[in-house]
Amino acid sequence: MELTAPDGAQVWTYGPPDAPQRITGPALDFCLLVTQRAHRADLGLLATGPDADRWLDIAQAFAGPAGAGREPGAAR
Score class of each variant (00 low, 15 high):
73 G>P: 05
44 G>R: 14
54 R>F: 13
34 V>A: 05
26 P>D: 10
56 L>T: 14
19 A>V: 03
27 A>G: 01
74 A>P: 00
40 R>P: 04
22 R>G: 04
20 P>Q: 08
71 E>Y: 08
51 D>G: 07
59 A>Q: 02
6 P>E: 05
20 P>H: 06
76 R>G: 13
69 G>V: 14
67 G>H: 04
48 T>K: 06
35 T>D: 01
53 D>I: 01
16 P>S: 11
23 I>W: 02
36 Q>Y: 13
19 A>K: 03
30 F>C: 05
38 A>N: 05
44 G>T: 12
10 Q>L: 10
76 R>T: 14
37 R>N: 14
45 L>Y: 13
29 D>L: 05
63 A>Y: 11
12 W>C: 01
70 R>I: 08
71 E>P: 04
60 Q>L: 13
36 Q>V: 13
5 A>I: 01
7 D>P: 01
40 R>F: 11
61 A>I: 06
16 P>G: 10
11 V>H: 14
61 A>E: 06
65 P>V: 12
3 L>Y: 06
62 F>L: 03
57 D>R: 14
46 L>P: 02
17 P>I: 06
68 A>P: 01
20 P>D: 11
39 H>W: 09
13 T>L: 07
65 P>D: 11
4 T>C: 00
22 R>W: 09
52 A>K: 01
44 G>F: 11
67 G>E: 15
33 L>G: 01
12 W>E: 08
15 G>I: 08
9 A>V: 11
34 V>K: 02
55 W>F: 15
55 W>M: 06
57 D>L: 07
4 T>Q: 07
69 G>I: 15
72 P>R: 02
51 D>E: 13
58 I>Y: 04
14 Y>P: 00
51 D>R: 09
16 P>E: 12
31 C>Y: 13
